[in-house]
Design a protein around this nucleic acid. Structure first.
Lengths: 190, 190, 190, 190
DNA sequence: AATGAATGAGGATTCATTCAT
DNA sequence: CATGAATGAATCCTCATTCAT
């Protein structure tokens, strides 16, 4: 009785699109390929998404929101240093659980299709994390400066870490992960 | 004897391709558009590059080598901290002088077309900078750990800084640039 | 026993199809749109009509028959001039009451779908009116010549009148209508 | 040296489109079919016309202008009756020389694609012929009334004549043509 | 009987590449 | 050598029709 099939189909299409976009680029993946990977007919995609562009935006927003959820989930209370550990681990967990999503979000150029709503979702994530920086700065635990800039530096370092490992086909062990966390914290520490 | 006209043409094509790729993506820019922007006929591109893929690889390699040149040019001798300042300024100079190149290299997904030779060029740059880290580690000026990982973190932070400024349509003033340099150095410092 | 519901549905579909065909052309209107306008599901249309082509033929035949009925209804006995007035008024009444039907019948090209049966219905109407001409010719009230040609001229004039008013977004007042009737009668008069 | 090939190609495309539109309707003819009939590749059409819609408008305008040219060519000076004969013969010559054009113009529904410019061309033709009526009315040779209405009646009669002959697969002989001309003149005569 | 989601062939259009000039 | 019109495969998308519910 419950109409869950449409939700499943929609998700299957989103998943297929993410996989293919993250590997072959938005401009490099054909709609019929997405359909095939999702196990539906080409025309079916258009029952769920008005166009390829809209599909890409939906993929982008879903990924961004999943990343935000992962950050929130691992967020801790307590000392600022512990809060940072929570964010770092959250990001790590997300990038391991959803490698395609992380790659798509952080190593692709989205401007050709990104719409206003999607951009807004992206901004929300940055500003959420920026609040963490502001709290740390208030307690003199994080160095002064524009919180959005500090976030950009720290988040950029994380992306660099993950991207480099992928480029070199290397897995990041727990020791490296923790050493990196310490190094990035040293960058933020006041 | 004068054979520089072809070189000019070749460069015009590379410049046009870079401009368009960096804004509209490899998959999103049409060869005739590149030709038009370069001021040549569509067929002429094929005198210089066998295919769109080859053209993209040439663009990629040229950008990577230009970035490496910028890093070398600003490299200093002397104290490790000063050497880092040289690298940081070199990177900054490059990203300001060639914004399209920097954006193309660091915010696009290249796997659909990147060939072995181009990947090798990319690796050379990382390893060059990694040598700087190794020297610093030998003198206990830079924290221990895999040099390639530390480079990934530091370079990632720089990319994050520049990308964030572009996303927010903000210009990075000299104060922010130096504060960021200090923060990233704190991340590397032993 | 009550089997009128299907008839209503069938009529709703025919009405919707006529509206859309007359405005957007047979080839330019999608079946789902007809369904939506008729207030039924897309699949339901196929309970009543085997295909889009059959639906279009049904629409065509219904319109032709409605036009014939309108002509008959206003047909008079008496002087040939009065009979003509009846036909003219009947045509006018029909084109005013069913503008979509008149437009569809007289300003569209039907050959891509029209089947033998529909063509036959069309012929019947011409021949019915041709009888009127023959009667007039027998009494020397209408000029000699092929009755079908005279009908084509007179009917064509009427179509021209109505089409021109539609094209120019003008309404035909009673004076113009009667003047036109007189003019067309002058064309037929023997 | 003279680049006439493009003109030929453009004309071949226009000719093919007219042939197919007039027989199968705008909405019923596929672009690849037009290309095939024109002897060019599908993509080539788009070097000459931005879209199917633009192609249809070009076809429409060319036909309308050709019809106007045919009317002008046969226009005579002298008595109003002779002028009418000229118009009638011009129309006839056009409909015989370009049956597809005449059919396309006068038995198809153009609103789905017709643009402002094309509509303007259509209006020019009507108004040109209306001037003839005005001249006749000034000399009391043509009955009073809105010239555009009289034109609509007369032109409609001609269209009716030609359409009926086509529907019945009958050829109009010279005697019928002249008798029809006389009849239509009787409709206009003051 | 009715529904409307799903299908996939077919439509309009684009674009990397070729080749006659 | 350079050109740019021509190509036609491949793209995104539509829509007549079917069929499980």
């Amino acid at each position: 009785m419950v109409r869950e099939i449409p939700a499943d189909r929609r998700q299957a299409i989103l998943d297929a699109a993410l996989d293919l976009f993250s590997e072959h680029t938005y401009g490099g993946t054909a709609m019929p390929l997405i359909a095939e990977r999702a196990g539906v007919a080409a025309g079916t995609i258009y029952r769920y998404f008005p166009s390829k562009e809209d599909l890409a935006n939906a993929v982008y927003r879903d990924c961004k929101l999943a990343m935000q959820a992962a950050l929130s989930e691992h967020a801790r209370s307590g000392a600022i240093r512990d809060q940072f550990r929570g964010l770092w681990r959250g990001l790590w967990a997300f990038s391991q659980a959803n490698p395609a999503a992380f790659r798509f979000l952080e190593t692709h150029h989205h401007t050709p299709y990104l719409d206003r709503a999607s951009r807004a979702v992206g901004d929300v994530v940055s500003h959420t994390v920026a609040d963490f920086v502001r709290r740390g700065q208030r307690g003199r635990a994080i160095r002064p400066g524009d919180p959005l800039v500090l976030i950009a530096l720290a988040f950029g370092a994380f992306v660099g870490l993950v991207k480099d490992a992928a480029d070199r086909h290397v897995v990041i062990d727990d020791k490296t992960l923790r050493a990196s966390e310490d190094a990035v914290w040293a960058m933020l520490e006041g």
